[in-house]
Each structure stands twice: as structure tokens, then as C-alpha cells.
Design a protein around this nucleic acid. Structure first.
Length: 117
DNA sequence: GCATTGACGAAGG
DNA sequence: CCCTTCGCCAATG
């Protein structure tokens, strides 16, 4: 085995991926919320950075369900196509207008609550 | 090894 | 109300 050296591989990315994968279809969450759930609420940027690595994560992470605190699809430009994120969200029943999730408040999914039952 | 950037967020001017 | 600055931490140049 390996692993040697053990130590703590802070799998911060994996933690983020795991949470995002648990986001139910038709729901969305935010970077800050995920960060807060992982205990790094002050580092919402790290969540976004982790998403950037999600392209290599398997199974693929539904990063399209992750938006900023305004419900805006800030990360759509990082997908294969800038419209892919919006299209995927629409297919899941999420209405997107002006690069922003409509009724975002209602679609919002909080792991700290849903996973804390 | 220091400087810049980044899919955020909250606060200040 | 819009724009700017700071904070956070990791990756990249």
C-alpha cells in the first residue's frame, strides 16, 4: 500500500465533490454554503477552485448545480461550452434567466440541512 | 520563493 | 446603488 507518508492528505476537493454529487436533481447550491459545510466558510474560493478540478473527477461532478450566492451561473464559462451549464440546469427543471437561476431561493439546497436530518 | 490569479463573499466608500 | 478592497487558501507563473 501506499500511501505512505501518510499524513493527511487533505482531500478537500473530494469532500467538495462528494457534497456536490449529493445535490438532488432540480436543486442548486452555492460555493459559500458548501465551504461552510466543510468548515471553510471563509474560503468559498477554494470550493470554486475545487470545481475547476472537477473536470478530472469521476464520476463527473454536477458542477452546474453549483452557483454563486446570487444564484448566478458564474462558472458557466468554465464548462465545455458556456451554454452547457444553463442547458443542463434547464433539463433538470431549473429555469435560468439572464445567467441567473430563477426562484433560486426555492431551488436552493443546503447540505448542512438536507444531510443533517 | 515571491507575486499574481481565481467558478466567492462580505464589507466599505 | 455601483465599484473597490480585503480575506481566505491553493495553484500557477
Amino acid at each position: 500500500m501506499k500511501k505512505s507518508s501518510g499524513t493527511k492528505d487533505y482531500h478537500f476537493f473530494e469532500d467538495v465533490f462528494d457534497v456536490v454529487r449529493q445535490v438532488p436533481k432540480g436543486r442548486v447550491t452555492t460555493y459559500g454554503t458548501i465551504a461552510a459545510y466543510l468548515g471553510t466558510k471563509l474560503s468559498a474560493r477554494m470550493v470554486g477552485w475545487a470545481m475547476n478540478a472537477s473536470h478530472s473527477a469521476k464520476p463527473k461532478v454536477p458542477a452546474q448545480r453549483v452557483v454563486n450566492r446570487n444564484g448566478m451561473l458564474t462558472g458557466k464559462m468554465h464548462f465545455a461550452s458556456p451554454t452547457e451549464m444553463e442547458e443542463k440546469l434547464r433539463k433538470e427543471g431549473i429555469e435560468v434567466k439572464n445567467d441567473t437561476v430563477v426562484n433560486f431561493k426555492e431551488k436552493f439546497w443546503d447540505p448542512a440541512i438536507e444531510l443533517s436530518i
